[in-house]
């Protein structure tokens, strides 16, 4: 096989990988979108009593993690493995803070006002934040895997599809939260 053919096949594979990832994200977006529609259908123009400051804080943490994810991918594109590791670990750390904030601080606080088994408020809140937190946790595992693989020297500036996929997935989780945060915490009249 000539070098040109090999390069063409590699380029084709990358294009297919990207298409596959985006199709997966699109299908996942329908799941998240369905839950968002359920929120507007069941809650209407109301919202339960939730800690808005805490919601804002975890939103900023997730945005910051997306910024560092972008930096880690850029570092890898330029073969700067040391910076990649630093930024990927920062992304991982901020992601862990987000999950801890939602599961161990927000959930107990929200549970006092909106128990999961009482009405549609608790059911929708815990469904949406739970599904999102599950995706954040899988993103954290994905990030941890690419850091391990990078440590083993398996990625280069020329070949790092795993890094690109993990980072794109991480940003997708961020995009979901961009819509979930106002839908859960900000939109609607407070229900006492």
């Amino acid at each position: 096989m000539s070098a040109e053919t090999t390069a063409h096949a590699s380029s084709n594979r990358l294009a297919m990988n990207r298409l596959g990832l985006w199709l997966f994200l699109l299908s996942d977006a329908f799941t998240f979108g369905g839950m968002l529609i359920a929120r507007f259908y069941l809650w209407g123009n109301t919202r339960p009593e939730l800690n808005q400051q805490l919601g804002f804080l975890v939103t900023i943490v997730l945005l910051a993690s997306s910024f560092f994810a972008n930096r880690s991918e850029t570092a890898m594109q330029f073969g700067d493995l040391k910076s990649f590791r630093k930024y990927a670990l920062l992304t991982l750390g901020l992601g862990a803070v987000f999950v801890a904030g939602v599961l161990f601080v927000e959930w107990p606080l929200a549970g006092a006002h909106v128990p999961v088994n009482k009405d549609v408020y608790g059911a929708i809140f815990f469904l949406m934040t739970g599904m999102h937190a599950f995706h954040v946790i899988t993103g954290l595992i994905f990030l941890w895997l690419i850091i391990r693989k990078a440590d083993k020297g398996l990625y280069t500036a020329q070949k790092h599809w795993g890094v690109e996929a993990a980072v794109v997935y991480w940003h997708f989780v961020d995009v979901v939260w961009i819509f979930y945060y106002p839908a859960l915490y900000l939109i609607g009249n407070l229900v006492k």
Binding site: N12, L14, R18, A69, H160, H171, F172, D174
Partner: peptide, 16 residues
């Protein structure tokens, strides 16, 4: 657009 680089999906896939 800027973090997920959706434009790559429509490029010829030769970035890496």
């Amino acid at each position: 657009r800027d973090y997920m680089h959706i434009g790559r999906l429509f490029s010829n896939g030769e970035e890496h």
